[in-house]
């Protein structure tokens, strides 16, 4: 990335705020569990559903500490969202680049497959897949990736379609460069801007989707701390322990906001017209 772009990125309040928020959550997710320990995740029945006045952020079902659950939940949520994004992005880039670069019949067939996948509401398909598979973290990632890559593939294809006729690509082709080299060296590095923007927004929706799956009991195994599972408890005990819905709600809200800020900022930074 050029130094000028980095400067623009740092000067943009939206991207800066987003980066700070996300960095905070990444640090909490990475080092928090190490600092706080796992004692809070053990069952202490006498503390069940006690509010924040009983200590820290209160206690959840079976007396599990809410703060500890949120910290461990941050790790799980970010891990699932980032892994799903990396996998979806990889599939989407390869698929979109092939489709856009080769065009014609290959493009038509590949795009119809995407159309078919887009005909299903993404979250609904993820719920369906997660319901079939047993509740495991890896299965959540799989369910989220199943439709997550489609958006990236479309963006990549559109970018490849516009870039493949640029002079430097034609020049590389004329010099006899192989297709994979043209795609990897000449095309993909030049379309990374829109993909990164898309990924930052995608991360936000994946955090929400992961929370939704856990909220529906289709996510991580029971007993594994996660924001969505805590939110699910919060709904069940809304009258007795509203803190169970409030704190994970705040965490999900702030993280999603952070990724959206980052996405907005990146869009401004990469948008040449706005310069």
């Amino acid at each position: 990335m050029e130094q000028r772009t980095i400067k623009r990125f740092l000067k943009n309040p939206s991207s800066l705020a987003g980066t700070i928020i996300i960095l905070c959550f990444i640090l909490i997710g990475t080092f928090g569990p190490w600092l706080i320990g796992d004692q809070g995740l053990l069952i202490h029945l006498d503390m069940e559903l006690k509010g924040p006045s009983a200590g820290r952020l209160g206690f959840a079902e079976n007396g599990v500490d809410v703060l500890t659950s949120l910290i461990y939940g941050a790790r799980i949520s970010l891990l699932i969202a980032m892994t799903s994004t990396v996998i979806s992005l990889s599939i989407g880039i390869v698929y979109g680049a092939i489709s856009g670069f080769f065009g014609n019949r290959i493009d038509a067939i590949m795009m119809r497959i995407i159309d078919m996948l887009l005909a299903f509401p993404g979250l609904l398909l993820a719920i369906y897949i997660a319901a079939i598979l047993s509740p495991k973290t890896i299965n959540v990632v799989f369910a989220l990736c199943a439709t997550g890559w489609v958006g990236y593939a479309r963006v990549v294809r559109a970018q490849v379609l516009s870039i493949k006729n640029y002079d430097y690509v034609i020049a590389a082709t004329s010099l006899g460069a192989k297709t994979h080299r043209i795609i990897l060296i000449h095309i993909i590095p030049n379309i990374l801007g829109p993909i990164i923007i898309q990924a930052s927004f995608g991360l936000a929706s994946l955090i929400l989707a992961e929370a939704a799956l856990n909220f529906l009991g289709l996510g991580v195994p029971p007993g594994t701390p996660s924001w969505g599972a805590l939110l699910d408890q919060g709904v069940s005990y809304l009258f007795i322990a509203p803190h169970l819905a409030i704190f994970p709600g705040i965490c999900i809200g702030i993280t999603v906001l952070g990724f959206n800020f980052l996405g907005d900022g990146l869009r401004d930074v990469f948008d040449v017209k706005s310069q």
């Binding site: 053990l42 069952i43 029945l45 079902e61 079976n62 029971p222 007993g223 699910d232 408890q233 069940s236």
Partner: peptide, 15 residues
């Protein structure tokens, strides 16, 4: 079963 209350009790047995 997926019932929240039953699940929470099963977690106690597990521990």
């Amino acid at each position: 079963s997926p019932d929240r209350f039953r699940q929470s009790i099963a977690l106690i047995y597990a521990q």
